[in-house]
């Protein structure tokens, strides 16, 4: 397994312990069901969203925001315009629950392997690219803050 921050590593380990395909999907769906908790607030943004918030290659039309926290970490928010974009919603919840409030250095190092660790290596190329687009935008936000010092 990749070198993930503690909470993310624990979640990935829990997910990988579930080998039944349908049970694995159920766990991810339960996460997607919590998407409203990470949905961008009207105070932060309302549609139509600026294109620089759009996750590259994500056909579920996912958008990502990062809000600076007093301790220097980030709190992540999302929107997924495709109501059937369950995988994008599930990943958004995973990111918020395990990477919001985490030191920027750790967020910046979360690799694309996370997509395969969560969704399986057989995920379609297009779907994988879209989910990596969400993760890539999250990393980008952390790296920009690190560069700015």
């Amino acid at each position: 397994m990749a070198n993930y921050p503690e909470k993310l590593a624990a979640l990935v380990a829990d997910m990988q312990a579930v080998t039944d395909r349908m049970e694995h999907a159920e766990l991810l769906i339960e996460m997607a069901d919590r998407f409203d908790e990470v949905r961008v607030t009207p105070e932060l943004a309302t549609p139509p969203y600026p294109e620089d918030r759009r996750a590259p290659a994500c056909e579920s039309e996912a958008f990502v925001w990062a809000v600076d926290q007093p301790d220097g970490s980030l709190k992540f928010y999302f929107d997924v315009l495709n109501p059937q974009g369950l995988s994008a919603m599930a990943l958004s919840v995973v990111i918020d629950e395990t990477l919001s409030g985490v030191p920027l250095e750790s967020v910046a190092q979360v690799s694309d392997e996370l997509v395969f660790d969560l969704f399986g290596k057989e995920i379609s190329m297009g779907k994988g690219a879209g989910l990596m687009g969400i993760l890539g935008l999250v990393r980008y936000e952390a790296r920009q803050r690190l560069k700015a010092g």
């Binding site: 349908m22 159920e26 769906i29 997607a32």
Partner: peptide, 9 residues
Amino acid sequence: NEDPLLYAS
């Protein structure tokens, strides 16, 4: 489907 979660949902 493309999305692996849809059927189970």
